[in-house]
């Protein structure tokens, strides 16, 4: 199964696990699996059905915005990572 690395501040919603194995054939399905199992994560990742604009999802070293976004295909060896974009003003 693919895995997702969870950013430190959100690990409180995954039982303090840094890495979660997920099922799904695309990034979107993997994130759905993640947020179904850990529903408290969802409001911090999504605004409605859209990923929050400061939430980056990487497949390996590639930002999914430069791939096929949530439709990016994954397989059992895929390592996903959620990385918040830090911005202030």
């Amino acid at each position: 199964m693919a895995s997702i690395k969870i950013p430190t501040p959100l690990r409180q919603y995954t039982g303090n696990n840094a890495e979660i194995t997920v099922s799904g054939a695309t990034v979107g399905e993997a994130l759905n699996d993640l947020t179904t199992r850990y529903p408290a994560l969802r409001p911090h990742l999504y605004d409605g059905d859209q990923l929050r604009n400061f939430v980056n999802v990487f497949v390996g070293d590639e930002d999914i915005r430069f791939l096929y976004e949530l439709d990016t295909p994954i397989d059992d060896s895929t390592k996903l990572r959620i990385i918040p974009a830090i911005a202030g003003g």
């Binding site: 990487f58 930002d63 974009a85 830090i86 911005a87 202030g88």
Partner: peptide
């Protein structure tokens, strides 16, 4: 009036902290 880091900055620092 704005500040930003790259996702790579986050990944590097989180890996170092871990």
């Amino acid at each position: 009036h704005r500040y930003a880091m790259t996702p790579q900055d986050w990944a590097r620092m989180e890996d170092e902290a871990d």
